[in-house]
Design a protein around this nucleic acid. Structure first.
Length: 678
DNA sequence: GGCATTCTAAACACGT
DNA sequence: GACGTGTTTAGAATGC
């Protein structure tokens, strides 16, 4: 006995390499420029004809040299007093890359790196404090540098004005302006690197920045030149660079200009948001030039532009064409505090999503592993697989929760525990079932078995899970699916084995059950045929079958509602997880299947019926679920919400004062009510 | 606790 | 006799 129960139970960032972790997101400009030397800049300067201009250039060069000295000091200081951990040093590509890269590196302690440091406990709290102090010292130096820059900028602007009035060559002006811009961008880059670092410190709780305290004064720098001017200069500089980059040069030289250029505003977004860091701190960054090229080739392929709307987070400005979008992008989303903050937010969003994705993938893997193991387990577990067990009520649902599943407390999805039941909850409809382990929901909630089987066909065929339907329902379905609405017993067998992997085992048991059901239920009529005996379905009789009604049990109703509440988030989580793994989702709800409507109706009806029953407090066993009952105060035996099941006239299944109206067993067929009916 | 429903197991009969 | 089909009975599990 009950071997079958045992059977039921059975069935029942790649870029982080060479120590150059993702923290080098902000290194792309340096990486791109590592082949550059400032000698190129001076060579360009040497080509200036105007002596006065040359002198100005020399002044600027001197200023830049001072700035470089400051930056080099920063670098050296950082290298000397930097992190002491060998691991940390390993992660520092600065010593192996050009100075232009190395210069930026000490400040590029990104959140990832900080987290790694903290997680690996490479640094002691004291070391972290030292690190923090160093960063703060760097900030002070940065401010000094900015002050120096401001003075220099004023000078340069004055000179520019003078040159303009004197009718200087535009090329020379641009050279001056280029250097100005370069220096601007260098500072911007540094500021943002520091911002990044400060952010990471904030995340680690090591640094607290008051709300009113601006992290870094980016705005004044961004206002240094008007956007059109910046764009113009940018284009010229980048076009010149593309040729220069191929030549290669002294890697040890510090080229502020080239470093700065690559970090100008248009590329900043991609710099920050591009997670695909390459090795050794060299990132494949979209330079604006490349971007513009790609936009020319694919004028609507900008990730921030789609459907005529700017997709900058929180913007959604309507841009009629791509040009207007670019104008909008450059004007509204230039490099400023706001854009930087938005980029940071977006970066965190992406990080969170990646983290979530990784967790979900891990969980899915564990689930699938678990289910696979479970499905191939021997018949040891006596717990029957509950395909229709309630999400909230079923004992097996909680008891069977596999411990192998990784605990993911951060997962925002709704209760995952029911999912642990595995295939049993893949179908939305099954999650509504509030029945005992052996209940089959098709009879309870009038869920169209045909729809469920059709939608989950592949699942049932491949997974050794018991279909959540009674034998009677399955037999009926098999017969109704046949062209002639009649099947021999063997054909019924074949249908079972063909449609359900579960019935490919223990044939003796379930076949016996099939035969038993065929004989037991009046709804199955045996017809002698030429071929032999075939079985047909008497729909009227079948409709007479009464599912176990839900009486006015408040707890049951509550549980049903709660289980329904689980449906949406759970389904969403399932859908998301399965979609990301390209697994077909056998749900009725998520696919927008009309079955959902039937299901919802069924639940509503069920709930209403239960409520009505509770309110009416009738002794009648009628659930009172059907709207027909409002018209006919007589007992409605069954009111199939499934259109297919509703084919039979309701009047036929309406009886009066029929208490044991389930006409399941022939034992009952002599009941007076049935006699009256028939 | 009793009843209803469903499932499982088994026994039996009958035909091929 | 083996096997398939059909019927019947009994017991267990579960929900009402």
């Amino acid at each position: 006995m009950m071997q079958e129960s045992g059977t039921e139970t059975k069935s029942n960032g790649s870029a982080i390499q060479n120590g150059s972790s993702g923290g080098n997101h902000l290194l792309p400009c340096a990486g791109l420029r590592e082949g550059r030397s400032n000698g190129e800049t001076t060579a360009a300067d040497a080509g200036a004809a105007d002596l006065a201009h040359v002198q100005q250039q020399q002044q600027q060069q001197q200023a830049l040299q001072v700035a470089r000295q400051l930056l080099l000091q920063q670098q050296q200081q950082q290298q000397v007093s930097g992190l002491k951990s060998p691991k940390r040093n390993d992660k520092q590509p600065a010593l192996q890359v050009p100075v232009s890269v190395a210069m930026m590196t000490p400040q590029v302690i990104t959140p990832q790196q900080m987290q790694q440091i903290l997680q690996q406990q490479v640094l002691s709290p004291q070391q972290l404090q030292v690190l923090l102090q160093q960063q703060q010292a760097l900030m002070l130096q940065q401010q000094q540098l900015q002050e120096f820059y401001k003075k220099q900028q004023e000078q340069l602007q004055l000179q520019l004005l003078q040159q303009q009035h004197a009718g200087k060559q535009p090329k020379e002006q641009q050279q001056v302006a280029t250097q100005q811009l370069a220096f601007q961008q260098q500072l911007l880059q540094m500021q943002q690197l520091q911002q990044q670092h400060l952010l990471s410190l904030q995340r680690q709780g090591l640094l607290t920045i008051q709300p009113g305290q601006p992290a870094l004064p980016l705005q004044p720098l961004a206002q240094g030149m008007i956007p059109t001017e910046l764009q113009q200069l940018w284009k010229e500089v980048t076009s010149a660079h593309s040729a220069e980059e191929t030549a290669g040069s002294n890697h040890s030289s510090l080229d502020l200009t080239t470093t700065c250029v690559s970090s100008s505003a248009p590329s900043k977004t991609s710099l920050i948001m591009n997670p695909h860091a390459s090795t050794n701190g060299q990132l494949s960054v979209h330079t604006p030039k490349r971007e513009s090229l790609s936009h020319e080739e694919h004028p609507h392929s900008h990730p921030l532009y789609g459907h005529g709307v700017c997709k900058w987070p929180g913007c959604e400005a309507v841009c009629e064409d791509f040009q207007s979008f670019l104008k909008h992008l450059n004007s509204e989303h230039a490099l400023d505090d706001r854009s930087t903050a938005q980029c940071r937010v977006q970066m965190q969003v992406v990080q969170q999503l990646e983290l979530q994705l990784a967790k979900d993938k891990e969980r899915l893997q564990a689930m699938m592993t678990h289910l696979h193991v479970k499905s191939t387990e021997p018949k040891a577990a006596p717990q029957p697989l509950n395909l229709v067990s309630s999400v909230t009520l079923s004992k097996s649902a909680s008891e069977a929760s596999p411990q192998s599943l990784p605990h993911t407390p951060t997962t925002p999805t709704a209760p995952i525990t029911p999912v642990t039941q595995g295939p049993s909850v893949i179908t939305t409809t099954s999650m509504h079932t509030v029945g005992p382990i052996r209940r089959r929901y098709s009879d309870k909630y009038n869920v169209p078995i045909s729809s469920d089987i059709a939608q989950n066909q592949e699942f049932y065929k491949n997974a050794e899970v018991r279909p959540p339907f009674t034998y009677a329902s399955l037999i009926r379905q098999a017969i109704l699916e046949s062209p002639e609405k009649q099947l021999t017993l063997n054909e019924i067998y074949n249908w079972f084995t063909r449609m359900f992997a579960y019935f490919r085992r223990n044939a003796a048991t379930w076949k016996n059950a099939v035969r038993h059901n065929l004989s037991l239920h009046k709804c199955f009529v045996r017809v002698e045929n030429v071929k032999g005996a075939v079985w047909t379905v008497d729909e009227v009789e079948f409709q007479k079958r009464r599912p176990q009604k839900i009486s006015g049990n408040p707890s049951l109703i509550k549980n049903m509602q709660s289980s329904h509440a689980y449906c949406t988030p759970l389904n969403a989580a399932l859908q998301a997880s399965m979609a990301e793994n390209s697994i077909p989702l056998y749900t009725t709800a998520s696919m927008g299947n009309p079955t959902l409507g039937n299901l919802a109706s069924a639940i509503r009806e069920e709930l209403n019926g239960a409520m009505e029953h509770t309110n009416s407090n009738e002794s009648d066993s009628s659930p009172g679920r059907s709207p027909m009952q409002a018209v006919h105060p007589v007992h409605v035996k069954e009111e199939p919400l499934d259109p297919e099941e509703a084919e039979g006239p309701l009047s036929l299944v309406t009886t009066a004062n029929h208490s044991p109206d389930f006409d399941h067993d022939r034992d009952y067929e002599d009941e007076p009510v049935n006699e009256d009916m028939e």
